[in-house]
């Protein structure tokens, strides 16, 4: 067991980083918004951390800076994006990521161009990452209980209903987009701390596909959705080691198949199963206690 953990230490550590990125995607998708801005903040914070690291800035200060920058830019992007709805909002977030891609590739002096920035010290180990994931997951689980959770559920399933019971869609979206930016920035920063490098690939198409695979596979029904999604994605290369060059294709197929056949994802299926069990238990209790008189 111990040797197994040691052998897969990198995979497990990366899994935790992916979980935070998945959380970042999740918090916006949960309020019915398809945004890929997470990848933008992943990249901004990643490059920021890598560059600061070259000047030996203390790691904690780097994290703080990454959160600050992501939060501020996330809020600005949110204020701009919430004036739009649906696909138009999605489009702006994609444009944001595509622009960053252009900047990263062209601004070679700072970003290292397509080669990126290498050879940085590793600042965080697997246990440290696990601790961060646990803290974020607990906060999210607490956050989505009760009133806020119900508001998110209504935004995810029925925007008009949400408005009709007094939920301010824009405000909810601004909060979600900003939170997503913070988490995306945190993930990007931790990614550099774990791997000791930042490459231009991390702004590319395949990170978008990775992020979507996690959040679609896991689903947006509850906080454990992205955890499941990230866990599966992290182990996918191990399972597909015979066909690594087809990994993107496999992920693409997963996204389409899940969307068509199980749009609620793993968390949704788990919730549904739990509902079924609860319903059965209740109805058998009712039958035992009193004769049903559903007069309808």
């Amino acid at each position: 067991m111990i040797s197994w953990l040691a052998y897969y230490d990198d995979v497990i550590g990366h899994m935790f980083v992916l979980m935070i990125l998945a959380f970042s995607m999740y918090v916006v998708m949960r309020v019915g918004v398809f945004s890929v801005a997470s990848i933008g903040f992943w990249a901004i914070a990643g490059y920021g951390a890598a560059i600061a690291d070259q000047y030996d800035v203390p790691p904690l200060l780097i994290v703080g800076g990454a959160l600050l920058v992501s939060g501020v830019f996330g809020l600005l992007l949110a204020l701009l994006a919430v004036r739009l709805s649906g696909l138009s909002l999605t489009m702006v977030t994609i444009a944001f990521v595509l622009l960053l891609q252009v900047i990263v590739l062209n601004w070679e002096d700072v970003t290292g161009g397509s080669l990126g920035i290498f050879g940085l010290p590793v600042h965080i180990g697997t246990y440290g990452l696990l601790a961060v994931v646990i803290v974020v997951a607990v906060l999210l689980a607490l956050y989505e209980r009760g009133r806020t959770g119900r508001a998110q559920d209504s935004l995810l399933h029925d925007e008009q209903l949400a408005q009709s019971v007094g939920i301010d869609i824009r405000r909810q979206r601004i909060v979600a987009l900003t939170l997503s930016a913070l988490l995306g920035g945190l993930a990007g920063c931790l990614n550099v701390f774990q791997t000791g490098m930042m490459v231009s690939n991390e702004v590319g198409f395949h990170v978008v596909v990775d992020a979507l695979t996690m959040v679609i596979l896991g689903g947006t029904a509850a906080w454990y959705g992205p955890v499941i999604g990230a866990a599966i994605l992290a182990w996918l290369p191990q399972m597909l080691s015979f066909a690594d060059e087809w990994r993107l294709a496999v992920q693409g197929v997963i996204i389409v198949v899940v969307l068509v056949f199980a749009p609620q994802g793993a968390a949704g299926l788990i919730q549904r199963l739990a509902r079924g069990v609860a319903a059965k238990r209740r109805s058998s209790l009712l039958k035992r206690r009193e004769p049903q008189d559903v007069s309808a």
Binding site: F34, T90, F205, V209, L212, I216, I255, V256, L259, P263
Partner: peptide, 15 residues
């Protein structure tokens, strides 16, 4: 969901 699915298809084509 259709927009997200299109990213999936794109991923297959790029691969």
């Amino acid at each position: 969901p259709m927009a997200i699915a299109s990213v999936g298809v794109s991923s297959v084509l790029v691969a």
